[in-house]
Design a protein around this nucleic acid. Structure first.
Lengths: 128, 128
DNA sequence: CTGCATCCGAGCGGATACTG
DNA sequence: CAGTATCCGCTCGGATGCAG
């Protein structure tokens, strides 16, 4: 099973209702990957909340729930008063870093190229 | 430069307004990767339309526009009557297949695990 | 054959307030 | 401190009709 072979995989297997969707639906939302990246060690709810500029209480809750539901993040209640809750990456969440890292690296490498294309495209429109 | 090193990249660099967002915003929509996967050779608009079950006229147009804007897909008008338009992957679009392939492969490998977690989670809720 | 405009419903992210 | 509920606006995807 599967060390990569890859490139073919994309062409052969990809459907809008296949595995590709599952992972994209999971991580492509606004905050999931940011949260996952921050959980290099167990972190408490408010700790995460303060670190992520711009996220709200409610949205962070939902993001964590979804990550927990898929087994990428573990939730642990520390009985104390005031109550504390710790979130951490599971091994599964950990293992996602590598493949996502490839995508991230690709983007960094091609960032200028992409932006240039976008600018040129927008310029062409404006010109007409 | 830069064969991966990766894993660190995710943790260090990731912000909700960084490169990660750029690529996810580009490919995480419902059809982009499906289209890109299908363009193993130049294809005409209606050819793509017919191949992708469920996509509508308008949505395919927009998907292609966005891919074109970022330089992942090239658009070529064949002057004939009736008019024909061919879409094809650019080298940039081509190069995206490899990093995306890693993510795709990861999902396939962990699909059962993820689904199991989701089921268990949903079950736990139901039980209460 | 392609492309564009209009309309519409659904879902996500965000603001706010209240509870254990 | 952590979580839940309500409300709301915006964007995306989809349906349809018209035009080069």
């Amino acid at each position: 099973m599967a060390t990569l072979e890859t490139t073919a995989t994309v062409d052969i297997g990809y459907r809008s209702d296949g595995p590709g969707r599952l992972i994209l639906d999971q991580i492509a939302d606004k905050w999931s990957m940011t949260v996952l990246a921050f959980l290099d060690r167990p972190r408490r709810f408010n700790e995460i909340l303060r670190h992520l500029e711009g996220v709200t209480h409610r949205v962070l809750t939902h993001t964590l729930r979804r990550l927990e539901r898929s087994g990428l993040v573990a939730r642990r209640v520390l009985t104390a008063s005031p109550i504390r809750v710790e979130y951490s990456r599971t091994p599964l969440g950990e293992s996602l870093r590598e493949p996502f890292g490839h995508l991230y690296a690709w983007t960094v490498e091609n960032l200028d190229d992409i932006r240039a294309h976008q600018l040129a495209y927008d310029e062409r429109l404006r010109g007409q």
